[in-house]
């Protein structure tokens, strides 16, 4: 029970990171981006490439930072991967989404994103093969926190949680203390009014993609570090991330953070209540319950 709770918090940390990017995009661009989770794959796989590159160039970087299974090479790979993923997100928007946005309506965007997800996922499968890959084949053993009840925590996951919280704090400062943060919120509230008041809309959208992509890339790496990399990881993650976004309320960064943890905990606690075959339904049952009480999510607001 306590173990499930802790596991849930640790799972929640990468879901939250993924959900933050998604909630921003859904809020500013007003469409459910089904390809968002592919940015996680993209980030995770580009980190794999940079990781191999770093370890190849400077072999000392490939040593593990005990007790983590993390290496310096991977840590250095993360910012590179964030840049690559952020720019990819931007490019996909420039090439596809912007054109659809100009002509079509919200739903065209949703399906364009579905199509993009198929494309990205299968290109990754063609390049890296369909089998799972790992950053490190060594298994990092869990630390025993308590014997009765048995509580175990993996060092990697503690790192992931701490790093995720730091990133969220930085984002919080950016959003609450900078002009960019104000501009973002203004655009989200009312795009035309914000433009009249001198907010550069295209530039704001650009930053949203860069931030969303970069955070997704980190989430992807963290997921890969805790589990494994497979080309279909986007498909497996898209629903929990959506669930987190919706539970938190679209547009609310803090909601996304909380939603990520709630979904993570629910998925892990579910096993206490339900047979394990039913676990995939749990995040959704949770969404339905939350939405019945609060139709716009925990922190979301109604808008026209």
């Amino acid at each position: 029970m306590i173990q499930n709770l802790i596991d849930g918090v640790l799972t929640g940390s990468y879901l939250s990171l993924g959900a933050i990017g998604l909630t921003l995009v859904m809020h500013i661009l007003r469409f459910a981006n089904f390809s968002h989770a592919e940015l996680l794959s993209l980030g995770a796989y580009s980190a794999l490439v940079f990781d191999a590159l770093m370890s190849g160039l400077v072999p000392t970087l490939a040593e593990k930072l005990a007790p983590l299974s993390l290496t310096w090479a991977l840590i250095i790979a993360i910012p590179f991967s964030m840049i690559v993923t952020g720019i990819s997100a931007l490019l996909i928007d420039k090439l596809i989404f912007r054109r659809v946005r100009e002509k079509g309506q919200e739903l065209s965007m949703v399906f364009a994103s579905f199509g993009m997800a198929l494309i990205v996922r299968n290109i990754i499968g063609l390049i890296f093969g369909l089998s799972p890959q790992l950053y490190s084949k060594d298994i990092a053993f869990a630390m025993v926190l308590s014997l009765d009840p048995l509580i175990l925590i993996k060092p990697d996951q503690v790192f992931v949680l701490v790093a995720a919280l730091i990133l969220m704090l930085i984002l919080h400062l950016v959003l609450s203390r900078t002009t960019f943060g104000y501009a973002l919120r203004a655009v989200a509230e009312n795009p035309s009014l914000a433009q009249v008041n001198g907010v550069n809309l295209p530039r704001t959208i650009m930053y949203v993609w860069l931030i969303g992509g970069a955070l997704a890339s980190v989430a992807g790496v963290f997921y890969g570090l805790s589990h494994q990399l497979i080309p279909v990881m986007g498909r497996d993650l898209v629903l929990p991330i959506f669930a987190a976004t919706i539970v938190g309320g679209i547009g609310s960064v803090y909601g996304a953070v909380l939603g990520g943890f709630i979904v993570g905990i629910a998925a892990n606690l579910a096993l206490v209540v339900l047979p394990s075959g039913y676990t995939p339904s749990v995040p959704f049952l949770l969404i339905i319950i939350v939405l019945m009480i609060r139709p716009h999510g925990l922190f979301g607001e109604a808008r026209a």
């Binding site: 997921y223 498909r235 497996d236 998925a267 606690l269 579910a270 096993l271 676990t279």
Partner: peptide, 10 residues
């Protein structure tokens, strides 16, 4: 296709 099998293993 589940992102994590932590709960099942636990």
């Amino acid at each position: 296709g589940q992102p994590s099998y932590r709960g099942e293993v636990t």
